[in-house]
Structures are given as C-alpha cells and as structure tokens.
Lab assay of single mutants.
Amino acid sequence: NKEHILAQKEVLTPIEYEHYVKHLFDIGEITKELYIELSS
C-alpha cells in the first residue's frame, strides 16, 4: 500500500526509490496515477 511504499523512501536512496516505484508500476502493483504521485 501507499504507506508501505512511502516508508521505503526513508530507507532507499532517491535513485533506488525511483527504480522501486517504477518496478511496482511495471508489474501492475500500482496505478499510473499513484506512480506519478509517488515519484513526484
């Protein structure tokens, strides 16, 4: 869920976080809207 993803932002580097969010989007775990929101 969104809270879990945002928690990852605390422990990952910005680049790792971007890759993580992109991966979730690629596998269909999150919607495009959520992907855009989380990567901003």
Rank of each mutant, 00 (worst) to 15 (best):
H4A: 09
G28A: 03
L12N: 02
L34C: 04
E37I: 05
A7F: 05
L12K: 05
H19V: 15
D26Q: 15
Y35N: 01
L34M: 10
I30W: 01
N1F: 13
K32I: 14
V11L: 04
Y35P: 00
H23W: 12
D26S: 11
L12R: 02
D26E: 12
L12G: 02
T31K: 06
K32R: 15
I5L: 07
L34T: 13
Y17D: 00
S39R: 08
V21E: 00
S39V: 03
E3S: 12
V21T: 05
V21L: 12
Q8S: 08
Y20L: 11
V11M: 13
Q8N: 11
G28P: 00
E3Q: 13
Y17P: 00
H19Q: 15
P14Q: 15
G28L: 04
I27F: 06
I30V: 07
I36W: 04
E10V: 05
E29H: 13
E3W: 10
K32L: 12
E29G: 11
H19M: 05
S39G: 04
E3N: 11
Y17G: 00
E16R: 05
K9R: 08
Y35W: 15
E29M: 09
N1V: 04
L6T: 10
F25A: 06
I5A: 05
K2L: 11
E37L: 09
E16M: 05
L38P: 00
S40A: 10
V21F: 02
Q8H: 04
L12A: 01
S39L: 15
H4L: 13
S39D: 07
N1R: 08
L34I: 04
K22W: 09
L34Y: 06
V21R: 00
K2W: 14
I5Q: 02
L38W: 03
F25Q: 03
I27K: 10
K32N: 15
I5K: 01
I5T: 03
K32V: 15
E29V: 06
S40E: 14
F25R: 02
L24N: 02
A7D: 08
K2N: 06
V11S: 07
E10D: 14
F25S: 04
N1C: 08
E10L: 13
L34R: 02
Q8T: 09
K2T: 06
I36P: 01
E16V: 05
H19P: 02
L6F: 08
L34G: 06
F25G: 01
E37G: 02
V21I: 11
H23N: 14
L24D: 00
H4S: 13
E18Q: 05
K22V: 08
I30D: 00
K22N: 12
K9T: 04
K9N: 05
Y35K: 01
K9E: 03
E33S: 09
Y17R: 01
S40F: 14
I27Y: 07
E3V: 13
E29A: 12
T13Y: 06
E37R: 03
I30L: 07
Y17L: 03
S40Y: 12
H4F: 14
E16S: 06
K9M: 07
E37W: 06
T13R: 05
I15K: 04
L34D: 09
Y17I: 01
P14L: 15
S40Q: 06
Q8K: 09
A7P: 03
D26C: 08
V11T: 15
Y17V: 01
L24G: 01
H23E: 11
K9Y: 06
E33N: 10
S40G: 12
E10N: 09
F25N: 03
I15S: 12
K32D: 13
Y35A: 04
K2F: 10
E29D: 10
I36H: 14
E16I: 04
K32Y: 12
H23R: 09
G28Y: 04
L34V: 15
K9H: 07
E33D: 12
K2A: 13
V11K: 08
Q8G: 03
E10F: 10
G28H: 09
Y20D: 00
V11P: 03
I27H: 15
K2V: 14
I30A: 00
K22M: 12
P14R: 14
H19K: 11
Y35I: 02
L38F: 06
H19W: 11
K32T: 13
I27N: 15
L6V: 08
T31D: 14
D26W: 12
L34E: 08
V11Y: 14
Y35E: 02
D26P: 00
H4Q: 12
Y35L: 10
H23Q: 10
L12I: 05
K22Q: 12
L12T: 03
H23L: 08
L24C: 02
V11G: 10
E3P: 11
E33W: 08
D26K: 10
P14K: 14
H23D: 11
K32H: 14
V21S: 01
E33K: 07
F25V: 02
I27P: 00
I27G: 09
E18H: 10
D26H: 13
Y20N: 01
L12F: 04
Y20S: 01
D26V: 12
L6Q: 12
A7W: 05
T13P: 11
L38V: 13
Y35Q: 04
E37K: 06
I5S: 02
Q8Y: 10
G28M: 05
I30F: 01
L38I: 10
L38M: 05
L38H: 02
Y20I: 04
H4T: 12
L34K: 04
L34P: 01
N1Q: 11
L24S: 03
T13A: 10
E18D: 09
I27W: 11
Y35M: 11
F25M: 09
H4E: 03
I36Q: 15
E29K: 07
